[in-house]
Design a protein around this nucleic acid. Structure first.
Lengths: 210, 210, 210, 210
DNA sequence: TATGAATGAGACTTCATTCAT
DNA sequence: GATGAATGAAGTCTCATTCAT
């Protein structure tokens, strides 16, 4: 029952809630690491708890079961992605030259995958086993594709809605997969892959939009 | 269909071996289905055995452990892919118009993924957990990329070896991923995706080769 | 009965620990019985658990695997033997007439083997199969031989160190074996064997020390 | 169906029986080695068969079950011991000086244990688990003790039958155990142990017989 | 008679989850 | 609410033995 040193007046319950939030975050952080390094199934809830330095009983107070942890992780990724996507809707993006736009998009993607390598990895592992996670990531991808489709539609209005959707689908999935693969490549080849992604994206879009 | 060199007609031991081979195949077939529908980890060896209608002990007479089953499956995929690739080396392919070549390549890929939907799915699930499977599938992909790079080099000799390799990597991985994703889409959208893959590939190659 | 330094009276966690300790002891007790009656290999962990009236999962919370149970048992024997040996170092023992000393030693041995018939039995069974147990029992025997050698050296200083060691080895092993064998004999013959061990030991030592 | 090269006339069934006997021997030889190195339980019947280069089915034609193999081994030891014991009944042994007699006895024992290290080892392992083996080895030891008791009785007739039996029991068991232990000792200490066995045997007997 | 593939009961062990304290 | 010892269903794999060929 250690008392927190300088408990501020008027914030009685705050520390406890903050502590809880911190614990939840620690659990998700640890789970992310373990899921990536050992795989979802090989990671035990007890291992997560002990690495997070949290009693197993407490873990189950925050998460009803093991799948809830991946779900929370997926949700966190989803939110992070959503934040990054805000930039796509800035009006000035619609006016950039296409090649500059493509450069920016790929660079943003690269940054995201580099920071959150589990986004793809973990999703792949639980494919079809945890429907809730699938739903969350599908929604995230759908949002991403929607934003990309809108962006494209703003530039060149001559296509159908379904055209934009198909293009966005192809680009989002192809780039997602290649980004993820590039993570484990040697640096020179990784950089080459980034360049290739820009190249095929640009040529694919030019083929459509011009 | 191969006859062992000097075996008397009537083959005393043939039936037994044939039975064994059939059992092994049945195990791999069942495992493929279960791995796809329930996931590798959620599929128990007893479930495989009972679905294959053989006793668990017999399963372990053919496969030392559970990982050996995925390995065998990966190997089977690998061989099937290898067979399909033979066609790429036919000299006439080098002389087709680029768009026709691309059409053929995508159609072949589609056929393969449609027939063996587990190729990608299962590989993804055991990523990093069963190194042997990773090695097998890496080798298969490497062969595929090598063949594709050669095919491209025959058409247009103006690029570096590393260029062909990068292009082949990008196409194999991106198309592979999109093909797999297309499997779970409604038919109209799936067909649209096939068309997009052709467009995507063609514009990317034209950008390079022309 | 060591008290942990600054623990309030009433010990909150003591009951739980006591329960655990009691369970561990019960496991070892049951294992001892089953190992003796059915043999180490024929004794299943589930049998131990159910005879000890605890769930199998709990057994594995205390012992990482089946060998750990024999190890704990060996360690317990080892400690018990160590306690009994304390008496050998009492100075007055060095001054007893040889025949009285021998009588005492054999009587102590008999008591020990009678109380812990598994000491020898189980050790024999796992010989060379569980190195850890071998190490524990070797250490116990080594201590016993060392104490005996010292005791002899105190009485008659005219021999080499290696002589004392050889004598101690012979006596410890031969008496140990005979004690164990005597356990399964009818009472009259068992008592005769005890007498013979005294005679045997005394004549052997007299031959050396006088 | 290889034909044995030079099948002698008039011995039609002999070769087959000889082959069987040779197979049985090979099985027992291999089992002896494996039981010693890996332990009785850890040695599988299939391992025995394959090391003996005999089909498992054939093994079960000679031995109804696994215990029958140890039994056969015990029986073989028993017979070998019996052969060696024949020498004890030669009249001249009764006339040797006691110390010479003891020397001879210990040397014979050493030879036997050196040649058949499994005699003791395997017996220990199956203690109480395979009653048949226990019976066989008990009988062998009983015979040995009987012979030794007779030998002693010939030299000095002043004791009871039970005295001779007790002495023989003590010596046979103590020496058996020490011989076995000496097998795994470094050579100098092993030789020292042999000498000690002679010493304690002689002093023990002198104490009685003189 | 000889063979060895086939069998399945059962051994050891794990781990998500609970609940008494 | 917080804790972590306790639980037991279920998973992987073994191996003595059989029996169809």
């Amino acid at each position: 029952m250690t008392q927190s040193p300088s408990k501020p007046v008027g914030m009685r319950r705050q520390p406890r809630q903050a502590r809880s939030q911190e614990r939840v975050n620690r659990i998700i952080d640890v789970a992310e690491k373990l899921f990536i390094t050992q795989g979802y199934d090989a990671t035990t809830t007890n291992a997560i708890a002990s690495h997070a330095q949290i009693p197993i009983g407490s873990l189950y107070q925050f998460f009803p079961d093991k799948t809830a942890i991946v779900q929370a992780l997926a949700l966190r990724y989803s939110k992070l992605l959503h934040q990054r996507l805000a930039i796509l809707n800035h009006p000035e993006w619609a006016e950039l030259p296409l090649s500059t736009l493509v450069d920016h998009l790929i660079d943003i993607s690269e940054k995201f995958f580099w920071e959150y390598p589990g986004y793809y990895e973990i999703f792949m592992q639980v494919q079809g086993v945890i429907p809730e996670v699938q739903a969350i990531e599908d929604a995230a991808d759908t949002e991403l594709m929607g934003d990309l489709a809108s962006l494209l539609a703003q530039r060149e209005a001559g296509l159908d809605q379904t055209d934009y959707e198909a293009i966005a689908f192809v680009l989002v999935k192809a780039i997602g997969n290649l980004m993820w693969l590039s993570l484990t490549q040697e640096k020179p080849f990784r950089q080459r892959l980034i360049a290739e992604m820009k190249r095929f994206t640009l040529s694919y879009l030019q083929n459509y939009l011009e």
